[in-house]
Computed example of a mutant assay.
Amino acid sequence: MTAQAPTTDTTNLSVECLLGREPGYEDVHGECRQTNDVPLPYGRGILLARRCCCTCHRQAKEPS
C-alpha cells in the first residue's frame, strides 16, 4: 500500500488563481475577476462560467 498525497480540487479555480499559485506568478492572482457566477441567458440555471472558488475571494466577501 502506498500513501497518496492529498489533492486539492482546482476545477473551479480561474486561470489567474491557478497560475498565481506557482512560484514567481503570485502577482497574477490579483487579476482574477471571476468573483460571481455568470448565468447563460434564458438557460434556466445553466452557468456560462462558474465563480472562482479560491479562498481569497471567500475571505474578501466577508464584512470587516
Rank of each mutant, 00 (worst) to 15 (best):
T10I: 02
L18V: 01
S14T: 13
R58E: 11
S14F: 00
G20Q: 01
T7M: 06
E16Y: 06
I46E: 10
V28C: 04
Q34P: 00
R21D: 00
C32K: 03
T8C: 07
Y25F: 14
T11S: 15
P23S: 14
L47M: 15
R44M: 05
N12E: 07
D27W: 14
G30Q: 03
Q59A: 15
D27M: 08
E26M: 09
G20V: 05
C32E: 00
R58H: 12
M1P: 02
Q34K: 13
R44I: 03
P6Q: 02
P63D: 09
C32M: 07
G30P: 02
T35D: 06
G45N: 03
T7F: 08
S14G: 14
P6V: 03
E16P: 03
L19P: 00
R58M: 07
P41T: 09
L48Q: 08
Y25W: 13
V28N: 03
T11C: 06
K61F: 04
P63Q: 11
E22K: 13
L13D: 00
C17N: 01
G45F: 01
P63W: 03
N36A: 09
N12W: 10
L48H: 10
D9N: 13
Y25Q: 07
L18A: 10
E26T: 14
D27P: 05
N12H: 07
R50A: 03
P41F: 05
Q59F: 12
E16S: 10
T7Y: 06
R58D: 07
N12S: 07
T55A: 15
S14I: 04
D9E: 15
G43L: 09
V38E: 10
Y25K: 15
T55R: 06
R50G: 00
L18Q: 09
N12L: 10
R21A: 12
R51N: 02
A60L: 11
P63I: 07
C17M: 04
D27E: 13
T8K: 12
E26N: 13
C56R: 15
I46V: 15
D37L: 01
E26I: 10
T35R: 04
P63S: 11
G24T: 10
E62F: 05
H57S: 09
T55Y: 14
R50H: 11
N36H: 10
D27V: 08
T2I: 14
C32G: 05
L13E: 00
I46T: 11
E22D: 04
D9K: 08
E31Y: 09
E16H: 11
G20H: 04
Q59N: 15
Y42C: 05
R21T: 09
N12M: 05
Q34Y: 04
Q59R: 15
E22A: 07
V15H: 09
R44P: 00
L48A: 13
